[in-house]
Amino acid sequence: MSRLLDKVAVVTGGGSGIGAATCRLFANQGAKLLVTDIDLAAAQTIADQIKGQGGEAVAMHHDVSSESGWISVMSCAQQTFGKVNILVNNAGVCVQQDLISTSLQDWRKTMGVNLDGAFIGVREAIKSMLANKESGSIINIASVNGLSSGGIEGCASYCASKAGLRLLTKSAALECGRKGYPIRVNAICPGGVNTAMNQMLSKEELAAKEKCHPVGRMAEPVDIANSILFLASEESSFVTGADFIVDGGVTAGFVSGDYPEMSAGGASE
């Protein structure tokens, strides 16, 4: 099947994790890829894999917090493939540290990548997409930690950046809709995903994290990539300003079963 036939997609942080899985899946569905990453070698590996399987892909070094970096990326997409249809703002960082030991510089680093980066990306993508006169889809990778801290301490800047990203998404969707731009903007909020971002956790922390997912496992990157594909494709033509929670039930409610049983007549003592 070719659910993204002839579409051109820019995927940031495409060198690993969710980004890499998304690039591979998009290529399988007929898209042409601009794989960007702060780690050029990682992006190049993914682009080479795609080309090795007969797809079209180009890799590029990209610091998403840099305005000039974004302008180079968009002009590269334009020059190489002639247009941009899809942007996946996936690049992100998570630094775990207590709030009181977080310097303003640390805070700004997280905001620079997770929020400034997405903002510049959304802005530049809208400009490129309008120039193409084709429909566009922007997908921002937020997090369930943009809805609640999830009981995890030491992630204040990460949580704040992801919450901001959710509302940046809705505001951009509203603006595009009202102005009649053929561009949809949506967010995905993954729960825990089996990627390098979780490598900082100890074995015990990892086991605890898996246990807090009602389905008993963390997501594989492709679990998230499949939702991104739905939002990128024309199948989601009426979806804009939405937040897709892909979290194995984390935000659905009680997990462990050790909550108080209630009898039919009311709460037990």
Partner: peptide, 20 residues
């Protein structure tokens, strides 16, 4: 099976109605 990790979730398809 593409939504293999989605459970207890909400899929909103509303043209942005609730985004405002």
């Amino acid at each position: 099976d593409e939504s293999s990790y989605m459970t207890g979730s909400e899929l909103v398809i509303d043209g942005g109605y609730t985004a405002v």
